[in-house]
Every structure is written in structure tokens, then in C-alpha cells.
């Protein structure tokens, strides 16, 4: 069998599998539409939170080809800082609507900025000196920074779950939870803003150029170091927003919250085609939906297995992700 024929067989198998999954979802949805719709909104919320993290992964990977393991812990720091801010300002579930809204907006801004600074600091300390080192070296420092952040959070906020005041509440409007609405209201402008920034501004153009070819970008007069720092800054901003929203939606957070969410977000980035911004968002929404459906229909304890199996299968059947270019020899 030639390589092309093999590829066709692999593609067909992948498509068959996809059809099978869609068909079984359809059957389940027809049986109990209410549960299905509920799970779908939960899935979209989860996916939106994951998308904010996944964008940070995919931007950094796109520009310096590094799996930024510390990114998940920047997200965790965001959720912890948000929690700390809400608690120390004395806002609780009983406070007035105005106070709650104000603390959410202010908390989001402060945590986004703080996370962006953390992310840029990590880049300056741990990745910049290793720009020309073999690719494993920054990967290891990324793991090191991740451990440092996780241990710090564990020492500051304790080793067990920390509860966050339930500021949004469990109400719903027209069958959609207010939590989901808040998440979408915060996430959508951020995603649109990021897309606008990357496609329409001079700095965004510099980012895309640097991602394509660092050397050529430098020749064209782009400050590569500044552009990379900017990428980390943007990733940190999004991770911070995601962290605060995560804390508000789940009303609890923990020092190792970053680990699993980070893995899921990275899976989402790979699923969409790493380095591809739109792909990361679509991949994250898919992962969020899969997470919600498998929690409802397969069993919560198998969620991780389902998601990682999907990751493995995507990479086997379509190594460049759903939206990535077909280019197998990517080093």
C-alpha cells in the first residue's frame, strides 16, 4: 500500500469514527432534549474558559515553539488572586448587585494585569536566556516555573480547596444559567479583541511575522524580543480572565487547579491545530462540550480518559489538528 493510500484509509477511519460519535450524540439528544441542552450550555461555558487558556498556549507555541507548562499555573494564580481580592474586599454572596458587579469588573482587570506581569516575568527569567538552546531546555524550565508557582500557591493559600463567595448565584434567565451568560459576556469581547489585535494592528502583524520566521522578522526591523514578550503578555491577560471566571463559576479553587485545566486547554490547542488562534477557540469549545457530554452520558470519572483518547486519536488521524495545515514534517 502506498503512503497516499494509507493516508486515505486513515482519513476514512477517522471520518467514520467522527460520524459514529455524532450519530450516538444525536440519538442521546433525541431521547432527552432538556438534559442535552443543559449539558450543551455547560459545555460551551467550560469551552469558553478553556479557550482563554488555550489561546495562551497556542500563541506561545506559534511564536517560539514551546509548550509553556507554566501557563496553566498562571491561570491558577489568576483564580487564586481573584478569590483573594473578593475575600479581602469583604464582598460576599449577600452583598448588593452593584458591589458584586464592581468587584467582578475590578477583579478581572487587576487579575488580568497581574497574570500578564507574571507571565512576562516568567518569560524573561526562564525562557529568554534559552532562546537558542535545544528545545528541551526551555520545556524543562517551563516545568520548573510551573512547580514554583504551584508550590507558592499551595504555601500561601493552603493545600486544600479554597471556597470563593458565590457572587453570581445559581439563577437563570430563559433556561440559561446566569453564570454561563457572564462567562460568555466576558469571553466573547476578549476573543474578538484578540483577533482584532492580531489581524489589524501593527504589533499583531509583527507577532504573525515573528511566528512565521524569527530571523526574517528581525531583518525586517521587528523587535523580536519585544514581540515575544507581548505574546506572553496577551496570553497572561487571557489566562488571568479565565482564572477569575473559573473561580466565580465553580465557587472553589485549589492550588493544582491549573494542572488538569491546563492539560485540557493544551489538548484543545492541539485539537484545533497548534499555533492557530481560531483553531484553539474551536478546539476548546469542542473539548468543553465533550467534557460536559461525557460527564452526563459516559460517567464523570471517565471524562479524562475520553478527552485524552480524543487527543491521541486526533493526533494519529490528523497530526496537524482540525484547522492546521497538512504538513506532517513539522519538527
Amino acid at each position: 500500500m502506498s503512503a497516499a493510500q494509507k493516508q486515505v484509509v486513515i482519513d476514512r477511519t477517522g471520518q467514520l469514527f467522527g460520524c459514529f460519535v455524532l450519530l450516538s450524540l444525536f440519538i442521546v439528544a433525541a431521547k432527552d432534549p432538556a438534559t442535552f441542552v443543559g449539558q450543551t450550555t455547560i459545555g460551551i461555558t467550560n469551552g469558553a474558559l478553556l479557550a482563554l487558556i488555550a489561546l495562551g498556549y497556542t500563541m506561545v507555541y506559534g511564536i517560539i515553539e514551546l509548550i509553556n507548562f507554566a501557563h496553566a499555573d498562571v491561570f491558577m494564580m489568576g483564580s487564586m488572586l481573584g478569590m483573594q481580592l473578593i475575600v479581602s474586599m469583604g464582598v460576599s454572596a449577600q452583598s448588593g448587585v452593584f458591589a458584586k458587579g464592581a468587584i467582578i469588573v475590578v477583579g478581572l482587570v487587576i487579575c488580568m494585569v497581574a497574570c500578564a506581569l507574571i507571565n512576562v516575568a516568567i518569560e524573561k527569567i526562564a525562557y529568554k536566556p534559552l532562546r537558542n538552546a535545544p528545545p528541551l531546555a526551555p520545556l524543562i524550565t517551563a516545568i520548573g516555573m510551573s512547580f514554583i508557582l504551584a508550590n507558592l500557591a499551595q504555601k500561601i493559600w493552603g493545600p486544600s480547596q479554597v471556597s470563593v463567595p458565590d457572587l453570581i448565584g445559581n439563577g437563570s434567565i430563559a433556561g440559561v444559567r446566569i453564570k454561563d451568560i457572564v462567562v460568555i459576556m466576558v469571553t466573547a469581547p476578549l476573543l474578538v479583541g484578540l483577533t482584532w489585535f492580531v489581524t489589524n494592528t501593527r504589533q499583531g502583524k509583527a507577532m504573525r511575522a515573528t511566528a512565521q520566521d524569527q530571523g526574517a522578522a528581525a531583518i525586517m526591523g521587528i523587535d523580536v524580543n519585544r514581540t515575544i514578550s507581548l505574546t506572553f503578555l496577551l496570553g497572561g491577560l487571557l489566562a488571568g480572565a479565565s482564572g477569575v471566571l473559573y473561580a466565580l463559576v465553580n465557587t472553589t479553587t485549589v492550588w493544582n487547579a491549573g494542572f488538569k485545566n491546563g492539560l485540557f486547554a493544551f489538548t484543545a490547542a492541539v485539537l484545533g491545530g497548534i499555533g492557530n488562534l481560531r483553531g484553539a477557540v474551536i478546539g476548546a469549545l469542542l473539548i468543553g462540550l465533550i467534557q460536559a457530554y461525557s460527564a452526563a452520558y459516559v460517567g464523570d470519572r471517565w471524562t479524562d480518559v475520553v478527552i485524552f483518547s480524543i487527543l491521541v486519536m486526533v493526533l494519529v488521524f490528523r497530526p496537524t489538528g482540525l484547522l492546521g495545515e497538512q504538513e506532517i514534517t513539522r519538527a
Binding site: T141, S146, F147, N151
Partner: peptide, 9 residues
């Protein structure tokens, strides 16, 4: 984890 992380970096 912190000591290990610093060591790695």
C-alpha cells in the same frame, strides 16, 4: 516542588 523547580530552572 519549589526547590525542585528552582533547581530545574
Amino acid at each position: 516542588m519549589l526547590i525542585f523547580g528552582v533547581l530545574l530552572v
